[in-house]
Amino acid sequence: MRGKHVAIAVLPACLLSACNRHQSTLAPFGADAADIRHLFIIMLVGAVIIAGAVALLMRHAVRAPEGAISHQKGMRIVLWLGGIIPTVVLMGLLAYSLPYMRPRPVAPADLQIAVDGEQFWWRVTYRPAGATSVDSANEIRIPTGRTVAFRLSAGDVVHSFWIPGLAGKMDMIPGRTNDLIVRADKPGRYRGQCAEFCGLSHALMAFDVIAMPPAAFDAWLAGQRRPAQARDGEGARLFAANGCNGCHAIAGVTAPTRIGPDLTHFGSRRTLAAGILPMTQAHVAAFIRHPEKTKPGVRMPSFPQLSDDQALALARYLQGLK
């Protein structure tokens, strides 16, 4: 009996281990997620009060002797507690929550970021108003204090774009573009995740989100627009010799292609394989040789014919792309 009580106390406490400030609606860094958290707390408090009241009433009803209240009084209780009060409470909660659900207004001058879900990575294109667009992948940077319009679609199957600390999730559907308008308020490093089962490595399809002060963001975007600073050498030779440029584009080095993730500024990213591995030379080399070991079902072929030294040389070359 005592063990049961301990289990009841400890098991919910285990859920607390999921708490973090990088990927949580309860730790918002954007206005929309803050609204969601606010509504969640209001609904939770309301639900606890209603559940408590129902439990108390049930206890009272079970214990009361038969005939304690008249038929008419009983019908009146059913009418009020079963009909009128729930209706008014639900109506009140609906009317209270609706203004929070109103989509954020967006202007043509606001930054657009097109994100396409692919198995199992993210194609990212920054489209600032009046400037050329910038291709990237698996990492999203946004300026704080400015409205940003995500234009979401998918290249193969249905995915779902979710940055819990920024806004609610939005489906990415092939052949259709969904708009998600957001505003980040707090600079920092956060994380997003695919939220719709999309294949074997669905759970391994994440991305880094970096919210930056506007001036720093503008400078970063200007840097991204420049072609890669690629170094010649063994790595560059291997990149071409193994046909990597058939799928991966490096602006200023290879011909444009849209099959795999853009690698123009690969070395400046913090994570590898769509938010899964830290960006170390050993991880990059291992991923090139056997990507399916990290991401089952990945479309990138494996390169087991590369020696350790060759894979490391290729990794060094890629990490130099900044």
């Binding site: 109506m91 609906l94 009317a95 609706l98 109103r102 989509p103 708009d179 308008i181």
Partner: peptide, 10 residues
């Protein structure tokens, strides 16, 4: 209520 209070296609 949602139609009147939201009034948006998104």
């Amino acid at each position: 209520l949602p139609v009147i209070m939201l009034g948006d296609c998104r």
